[in-house]
Design a protein around this nucleic acid. Structure first.
Lengths: 134, 134
DNA sequence: CCTTGATCCTGTAGTAGCTACAGGTGGCAA
DNA sequence: TTGCCACCTGTAGCTACTACAGGATCAAGG
């Protein structure tokens, strides 16, 4: 009935206990209730938020972006322009990274192709690394 | 005539002074000579190594990979299978990253498309973030 | 009721890969 | 020789966690 210890929450979400406490400390996860003895007690809200945070982090949203998403209501609230903006911004970021990595892939692939792999005095890989940037 | 202070080396390579000292400390860059007063004096080898390290890091080689490349002779020595192996491994890594990012790009792009950007009760972006992972 | 062992608590320190100080010297030109 | 910049070491900061140490709490079995 939605009354979990930190360990149970960790098992449910796959997020380390220490990380849950960390999220709480830095304000990503709202503070939980406590037992008489001081143990944390979590409910549905926390489970939902934590899953949300985890998923967003896995999808590459930065902690700042996650915080922004949560601050504007998180999974509890309706969609708004800002949510979309963050996603769009993140998408642009992802596309930039893909572009960079593709350039790098080409460079690496062609270099490796040119490299014989034997002990010769000029090595394509080393050459590539010695070239000035761009 | 190849006798540079740390500041000159920093300007030549675009690597921060602190970072040069850090590279030296962790063994990426070999230790330099010193003046009477204890100031570092760098030569051509250092300049070359440092440029190599910088370039390799920019191309996404991990510090461990850079160290391995340097350990097997760095820019001074001939090419060998191991150099190629490291490059190939790195290439595979880059390709994996590209693949992951492309999947993410699709997900984000289609989600953003479906998101109206207005205050409605179900938001595609939020929905995406609430979905269980795979 | 009491013990036992798993779980939890706080606080601190560690991780990578740097970056940024603080407080103190060296180098060099006027 | 004075002035000032560059340099030195050592330590602390950064992000986003992770991992302890030393102690308290919880729940189940006897």
């Amino acid at each position: 009935m939605a009354n979990w210890s930190i360990g149970e929450l960790a098992r449910k979400t796959g997020v380390h206990i220490e990380t849950i406490r960390y999220f709480e400390k830095v304000g990503l996860l709202e503070t939980s209730g406590r037992t008489e003895g001081g143990h944390r007690v979590f409910g549905d809200r926390h489970l939902r938020s934590l899953k949300f945070i985890k998923r967003a982090r896995e999808l590459g949203f930065s902690p700042q972006e996650v915080r922004a998403l949560l601050d504007m209501g998180g999974p509890e609230d309706a969609c708004c322009d800002e949510v979309r903006d963050i996603a769009v911004h993140h998408l642009e970021d992802v596309r930039r990274k893909i572009k960079d990595l593709k350039r790098l892939e080409e460079l690496l692939a062609s270099t490796v192709d040119r490299c014989s792999g034997s002990h010769v005095s000029d090595c394509a890989v080393i050459d590539m690394l010695e070239e000035p940037v761009r």
